[in-house]
Each structure stands twice: as structure tokens, then as C-alpha cells.
Simulated scan of single mutants.
Amino acid sequence: MARERKYTDEDLFQATKQMIIADGYEAFTFSKLASVLNVSRGSIYKYYENKDELISEFLMYEMNRFLKKFNDLDKSGDFQTQFDLIIDFIFEQSNIHQVVEIIPQIPISTTKRVEDNKSKLSEYYVDMYEQFQGFIELGRQENVIKNHIPTAVLLGMIFQTIAIPNHFGIPQAEWVSSIKEILSHGMFEK
């Protein structure tokens, strides 16, 4: 049996995040998590009835952290200034798309705690979407973004380009700069 030791919520959530990103929701188990944390499964069950409770709590933690950092950004400039700031921020928080994709995988009917967490996560998601939608609207007001392109397409493009893997090891600054250029001006010579 693994030797018991105390762990913080931060330790627990970081281990959960690493495991979910590496292996996915379905492969996540308390046994594997306990092994990573060097504790018994029972020490995790003291706080969480099942993996859905833990994962939903982890998702709440991640979304709270993401939204707090996003809200702390100085978004007082024009669209181009905000665009650079927001794209840099999204790259710094690049795992958020993997985290958000987990939400629909959690069954709502496991426990009341999971149900409440999923409801709150939906609110966080709407808040996040509305903030990014406001960013797109600023671009439209400044006549920088084409009005005929749906907001959902624009936001999807932004978030999906962030998810493109850098298999060729292009330096991060060059990678981000290239993504910004493609998002801002496309790939065609004029």
C-alpha cells in the first residue's frame, strides 16, 4: 500500500490535468491518480464520491483560474492591441480547449455535486463565450473584422489554430507570430 502523505488541491488538480490531457476522461481512474500522488485511493475517496465529482471540481478550478486571468487582462486598447493580448493569453493557456472538451463527457446524473458543478460550468462557458464575442464585436465596430463572417466561425478559427501542434519545433515566438499573421491577414499574398 502506498505511504499516505498530504496533498493540496493544487497537487490533486495538476495531477488530474496531466492525466486527463495525456490519457483522456475514460482512462482516468482513482487508482492511477493515487499512484501519481503516492497516496491510497481511500484518501481521494474521502473527498470525492467518484471520478466525476473530482473531474467536475477540477474543471471548475480550471475555468475559474482561466476566467480570473482573462478578466485581469488590460483590455482597454483598440481591437489590434486586444487581439495581440488575447492571442498571447490563449497560447499561454493553450490547454483550456482540452479542458473544455471534457465537460460534455461527464454524466450529469452521477451525484448532486456533479449536477451542480456541470450547471456552474455551463455558466462559466457562456461567460467565456460572451467575453470573446464582445472582443469580436469590437473588431466589427472598428471595421477590422468582416461583418458577414459568423462570430462562431471566427472564434472557432481562433481556438482551433491555437490547438495546432507545432511538430516542427518552430520557436514559440515565431509560431505565435505566424498564427497571428494568418488570423489577421490570411495566407495569400495581395
Rank of each mutant, 00 (worst) to 15 (best):
F83E: 09
E62Q: 13
L12V: 05
G139F: 05
L155A: 02
K6P: 01
A27N: 06
P150V: 03
S56D: 06
E92R: 03
E92V: 08
L54V: 04
F79K: 03
D9F: 07
P104D: 05
N143W: 09
I106C: 03
F159A: 08
M157K: 05
I145N: 02
T161S: 12
E115F: 07
I103E: 04
S31I: 10
I170W: 10
F135P: 08
F83A: 02
T111P: 06
Q160S: 11
H185N: 13
N71A: 10
I162P: 02
S177W: 15
D78R: 05
E62M: 05
K75Q: 07
D116S: 12
P107M: 08
Q133I: 10
D74L: 01
N95A: 09
E57Y: 01
G77D: 07
L121N: 07
P171E: 07
I106Q: 07
S76Q: 07
Q80I: 15
I149L: 10
Q93G: 00
H185F: 12
T16G: 00
K68D: 15
S94I: 09
K51L: 08
K6V: 06
S122N: 14
V176E: 13
I145V: 14
L155N: 06
K51Y: 00
A34R: 15
G186N: 10
G134T: 10
V39C: 13
G139T: 09
N143K: 14
L154H: 09
Q80L: 15
G134R: 06
W175G: 01
I106F: 04
A34E: 15
I44Y: 11
N38M: 11
K51M: 06
S35H: 14
A22I: 01
E101M: 00
G134Y: 11
K69L: 13
F13C: 02
E4Q: 06
A27K: 00
K180P: 03
S94W: 03
I106L: 03
L73C: 00
D11H: 06
L33Q: 04
V153D: 14
R3M: 09
I182K: 04
I162S: 08
T161N: 11
Y129P: 04
E62D: 11
I182R: 00
Q133L: 15
E57F: 05
T110G: 07
I86V: 09
G134I: 05
D74R: 02
V114G: 03
M1P: 02
K190S: 12
D52E: 15
E174K: 00
I90N: 04
V36K: 11
L154Q: 13
A15N: 04
D88F: 02
T151L: 04
S109Q: 14
D11Y: 02
F66Q: 06
H167Q: 12
D84H: 08
Q82Y: 09
Q105V: 01
I149S: 03
F79Y: 10
G24N: 03
I149C: 10
I179Y: 00
P107V: 14
H167G: 08
N50F: 08
S35E: 11
Y48R: 10
V153M: 11
K180F: 03
V99P: 04
Q172E: 14
F66D: 04
K112W: 03
A2S: 13
M157H: 03
Y125Q: 13
N71Q: 11
